[in-house]
Nucleic acid binder design. Sequence first.
DNA 1: ATGGTAGACCTTCTA
Length: 259
Amino acid sequence: MRIATWNVNSINARLDNVLAWVGAELPDVVGFQELKCMDEKFPAEAFERLGYNVAVHGQKTYNGVALLSKTPMEDIRRGLPGSDVDDHARYIEAVISGPTPVRVGCIYLPNGNPIGTEKFEYKLDWFARLRKHAGELLALEERLILMGDYNVIPEPEDADKPETWVNDALFQPESRAAWRALKNLGLADAYMQADGAPGGYTFWDYQAGAWQRNHGIRIDHGLLSPQAADRLKSVVIHRDVRDTEKPSDHVPVVFELDL
DNA sequence: ATGGTAGACCTTCTA
């Protein structure tokens, strides 16, 4: 089973580009982040024509997440639990049905910039809520993947120029500690388990020729429960997608599980 | 130290 995550930076502005990749790869499951549209503006029919079931959690202008699955999705959850006031559409979860079901959480973690503001506090609070929810999911002892744009550079090796990120929310000690605390519940960083090679970047800024200079960072991750980690075959970062026409600033990451 | 780009959209915010 191949499960993909991709921050598309507007699903409608990106539709041709996204359909080309999804249509060519046809992963069993796809999680999108940064739809930048409400549910009714999500181009569901285009993906249904490719054979997918669609679950969307959108909002106007910002954020928005969605899941595609070839098999029906069950137990769909929209929104991260643990807050009465958070109205950002940053989390959607579903159980992918089949002979060996897998629960997939699709995450668009807050960016948190600039540091020292309420935005950074919101990031850390969201991280704490995610940790609490992940703990509850781990207790189910299921095959589980929590994947998406975590907006965290875990280690200096995950940036081409780590020194340029020291004042950025993505590389703050608090952000990295929150990432470690999440992993320390008993989740495996799929990329590190399957590959671990430095330079596996998933994002290159549009500005200042970051792609041409390979000034990338690894911020799109998949965390696996033990039941899923035992079945991980490979992680492939589709970096060539960054060189296509009208690309997202993130590229797809595909997790292959032996299910 | 600054600026550089992209997307949504009311002109600035987010990334």
